[in-house]
Design a protein around this nucleic acid. Structure first.
Lengths: 212, 212
DNA sequence: TTGCATCCTGACCGTATGGTCAGCTTTCAG
DNA sequence: CTGAAAGCTGACCATACGGTCAGGATGCAA
């Protein structure tokens, strides 16, 4: 009677449940932090009994780790925009767009990531020391090259990167504050567009990479 | 034997203990989040028995609220730089300096504030809807005036403010990430100076407010 | 059809945590 | 000096949480 779908195959069951749990966990971890999140709440949100969570993820830590790693993947993927670009205008524009889209579509993930880093990255320390460092060094080299080629002013690449991360991430992490200051309403399509435009204009102008 | 100071007066005792508790609480809340923080840990860090905490602060929520309100005060005070300035160069420079100094000297407080907002500002919602909104509207008006007076390009004042908040706050909230990418060492005096300089240069240039 | 691996779950457990309280010590006004 | 108010604290309690487990249900290969 309550069944609307055909009996599932094992593979599908596993995949769907894991997905539901990860989605619910992301939201709960984002809203309450690791310490404030409870397995019970995640289970309720995922529509599963609590014991079932432990069938898929042995411990709360393991579940949390999975959530954080997921975000990290998405976060790193936004990097591609940077690489294929031929100059700061293309590259930084695309990167800002990509990161703003993540902030908009994936605010919970962004918050979990922020929370993880704020608390000293207990789970991701090794990633930060390897993958993140490599990624950053690569991007720093690219920016340096752009500077040498006269495509932008000599700005410290690291602080520029931090600025990009901070500004774009802010729209997810501090979304509640922005919403409150926006009269309690989420940003509209137009406002998101304006946000992107403003950020891009200020930064690109700021580093002397404006077209005209 | 262990007494190095003369017996204290009641007033002093109260003041000192409250201060010690608030300091310890700020650190623990910053490191573990509200849910992950324990009264026991705060008590240990403050060097007091747990029951004593409850003598000064009835509940964990009340203690947390005090910590958050403290930060909010400091945060708002940085605003003054903005008001007394005669133009964007002075005002924004001073504001960036002030907020960066907060990020450097008060990273725990900044993290607690960030955490509070990220979790939907359960404690500070009323403040955000009154004080913060008023403050923001005031600053928006100032920026608008600067634009009308031709002292800077027509940038959306709100997104500019968000950019200032995000960029400066990032050095506290994501301090661990920055430290990791800095070879595991905290930023030196020189690096902090460079950070400020870079941010100021990019933003002031970006909004067309550079002196020359 | 059968046997088995996978999937599921209600009931349970040990522990850690926020909070309480009775009764002690210390300060200090009168 | 004295009594009351303020300050302090070890021991205690109820609860909520992460995690376990025995045993039932279900899909599926042979």
């Amino acid at each position: 009677m309550t069944e609307t779908t055909r009996p599932m195959r094992r593979q599908d069951i596993r995949r769907e449940n894991e997905k539901a749990i990860l989605l619910a966990a992301e939201k709960v971890f984002a809203e309450a932090g690791f310490g404030g999140a409870t397995m019970q709440l995640i289970a309720d949100l995922a529509g599963l009994p609590k014991a079932n969570l432990h069938y898929y993820f042995a411990t709360k830590e393991e579940l949390y780790r999975s959530v954080v790693q997921n975000i990290f993947e998405i976060w790193l993927q936004a990097a591609n925009c940077f690489d294929v670009a031929r100059g700061p205008i293309d590259g930084i524009s695309a990167y800002i767009d990509a990161k703003m889209e993540i902030s908009r579509r994936h605010p919970d993930g962004s918050k979990v990531w922020a929370s993880e880093v704020m608390h000293g990255a207990p789970v991701l320390q090794d990633y930060m020391e390897s993958t993140l460092r490599e990624w950053t060094d690569g991007r720093v080299a690219i920016v340096r090259r752009w500077i040498e080629e006269g495509k932008m002013d000599p700005v410290d690449p690291r602080h520029l990167l931090y600025m990009l991360w901070a500004t774009t991430q802010h729209y997810a992490d501090f979304g509640h504050q922005i919403e409150t200051l926006n009269g309690g309403k989420p940003l509209s399509d137009r406002q998101w567009r304006e946000a992107k435009e403003n950020i891009k204009r200020v930064i690109l102008t700021g580093i002397g990479a404006q077209p005209a």
